[in-house]
Structure formats: structure tokens, C-alpha cells
Design a protein around this nucleic acid. Sequence first.
DNA 1: GCTTCCATGTAATAGGTTACATGATTTG
DNA 2: CAAATCATGTAACCTATTACATGGAAGC
Lengths: 194, 194
Amino acid sequence: MTLDVRTMCLGALSEAEASGYELQKNFKEGPLAHFLEASYGSIYPALTRLTEEGLVTCSEQTQEGRPDKKVYSITPQGQDALEVALRALPAEDRFRSEFLFFMSFSELMDAGQVSRLIDDRINTVLGKQAILEESNREDLTPGQKFVLGYGHAMMKASLKYLQDNRHLVEVPQMRPAPAQKNNGITSPSLNQDQ
Amino acid sequence: MTLDVRTMCLGALSEAEASGYELQKNFKEGPLAHFLEASYGSIYPALTRLTEEGLVTCSEQTQEGRPDKKVYSITPQGQDALEVALRALPAEDRFRSEFLFFMSFSELMDAGQVSRLIDDRINTVLGKQAILEESNREDLTPGQKFVLGYGHAMMKASLKYLQDNRHLVEVPQMRPAPAQKNNGITSPSLNQDQ
DNA sequence: GCTTCCATGTAATAGGTTACATGATTTG
DNA sequence: CAAATCATGTAACCTATTACATGGAAGC
């Protein structure tokens, strides 16, 4: 089984009823933001399908000063389906990083580009960290807190690694360079903790 | 630009010539294993396309005792294309974790399942760590070492977090209701396989 | 006045996985 | 003797992204 948008929506609706628009926002800014993401183009069809299958119901709400809203709620069958799904074994994570791919070819880039890439990366991680911190409220379930903490730990580790090891790819390689002191290239061993 | 299998293959071939079969193995077991993965169904068509575009060339090699092999090498145009691609801004990481999704609903699972999930996760991370350690050879480029070290740091942080915080989801939550009867509603379950 | 937020949806497209099809050889 | 490894490829399928289409209200 793969974690698809349909299951993501069902899970989110088991926490609270919401519209498609709100779901997208929750994925993007909620406590699970670091590993969930979905576009409207996948959310709306998913909700239609869940409704057809009887796992959620929809009630249209007219609002003043705002567009109409379709609020979806989970049904008992939906809750059941979610709990059944939760008994299976989770599939492996899907992680694909263009940043790391680029970095693995740092010798093919000039120093400026490499540094820029790392700076950008640090900034995006800081941004994501801020999002997680904002969504850390008291009303989160233990599970959500656990997951949020996990994301936070990963980002902290990421920042630390980038800061501590950027010199490995920023030190100009094979240059007929003049005397540059401080050639502190530490052997990039895997197990360097401190 | 998105990191597609075609670009992954081109990058790998810029390091060394290889067959499609070898590329898959390299993705799965090499120093970039933690964020690259591709099936044969995507690699072989990608190689065909790269050849058509003149970015790689192919030479068939007959082997004794083994099936014939198609060894692909990068062309100057291919090397050029790779370096051009490297000047762009990398797209955001794609990360989707079914494990974390499950954990965020830990209250809906029984304690045994939660513990099993965490144990399994620890074991898979340990397995991936072993793969990375095995691929840590001296002939890696600085970029590859940097990326491999990054993966290693992430896994270490992951293990530490799991071990230090599993109690957050393993402590039994105050459940009001004792016996939940299992009503056998044949609900249209989510992706029931097996 | 421009941009962002609210709000829903469809269609074209891209990109990938899984299963299928084939088959010799080596390892346990 | 069964399983894994080596080796390539296609076809059916699935899922998700992007762009398109629409439009009022609120904030800057």
C-alpha cells in the first residue's frame, strides 16, 4: 500500500471536518508538513472518490463574503477503513532530493554555486522549522507531537550537518592555488560525533 | 526541473560507464542510496531516450556465462547537458513517509502495533546505515562523501529520536471505553491487498 | 491598485511502478 | 533443487503535478 492523497485526506478528516481548501493548507502548514504535501488537483478528486465510496460525507455551506464551501466529514465506515489501513505494514518512505543529487556533483560546479545552494538550503530548512514550531500546539495528539518532534529533530540534524561540513565541498578542489593556509580538510569520516 | 530518472542516469554515467542493471544496483546500494531509487521500468526507457538524444552512447558486450550487456557511456554533449542542469536551482525535496503518517494516528492503534512499527523502523534504518557504511570508500568524490555523510547524520538523528521518544506513543493513553466490539462491517477498505 | 486569500474543479501531461515476458548461471 | 543473480525490455496502470478556468473580498 502506498500513502496516497486519498488516505491522507481520510486521515485528516478523522481529526476534524474540513474543506478541500483547508486540507491543503493543513498539509502544508500543519504538524505533518514536513512529509505531507498535496496539490488541489489531487485533493479534490480524492474527496469526490471518498464521498462516492461512502467514507466521507459532504455538506455544502454558503458563506457571506466568501465562496461557498464544501465541508467533508468522516463516516463510521470511513473511520473503520482508516483503522483497518493502520493495521497494515507501512510502505517504505519515498525520499528524493535534488539538492543532494546536485551536491554529489559539487566538483562540476563552481564554488559560488555550491555556497549559494547550501545557503538556500539552510534558509529553506529554517523556514520549515518555523512552520513546525508554529503548529506545535497543546491540542495535538501524542502521535502528532511525536511526528512533529521527529521532523524537528531531522531539521536540526540537517542544519548542523550543513554548517559543520560545508567546507568539505566548499574548499576549492584541485587548484594550482598559491599558499592557502588553513587547509583543514578533516577526513570526512562517517562517524564523527562530538 | 525535477530530478527524474533520466537525469539520475546521466549523472551516474558521468562517474562511470554502466549498464542499466548496474545503474539500478548503484542507486540502491551506492553512496546516494538514501535518496535515490529507480525501477528497471524507468531506467531502461530513460537510457533509450538518452541515447536517442545523443547524451550517452551504448556498446553491446557479449559475456560468457552471463546475458549480454549494454554498457552506456556519457558523451561530451551529455557531460555538457549535466553541467548545464547543475547550474539551475534544485527543486524541493520530495519526502513522503507512510511510517510517520501511521505514527500520527498512534491513538488509533493498539500498543503492540505501535511498538512493532517502531522496532521495524529502527531495523530498516540500521539496515540503510549499513549500506551507506559499506559504500564509503576512499575513491568517492568530496561531493559524494558530503552527501553520504549527510545521509548518515540523518539516520543517526532518526535512530536517536526514535529511541529517546518512543515512550511518547507507547505509553497507553487514558482510554475511556474498555471493550470495543468488533462489528464486522464490510466496509470498502482502503487498498486492501494480499 | 495590486496582491493575496478564499474556494472549487477539470484536463492535459508527466512520471513513475508493477507485472509480465524470457532465460542462463551461480550459489546455498 | 530452489533461490538468487545477472540481464533487458514492454505494456498496463496509477498517481500526481501543472496549467487552465472562474471570481469575489480583504489587506497592503
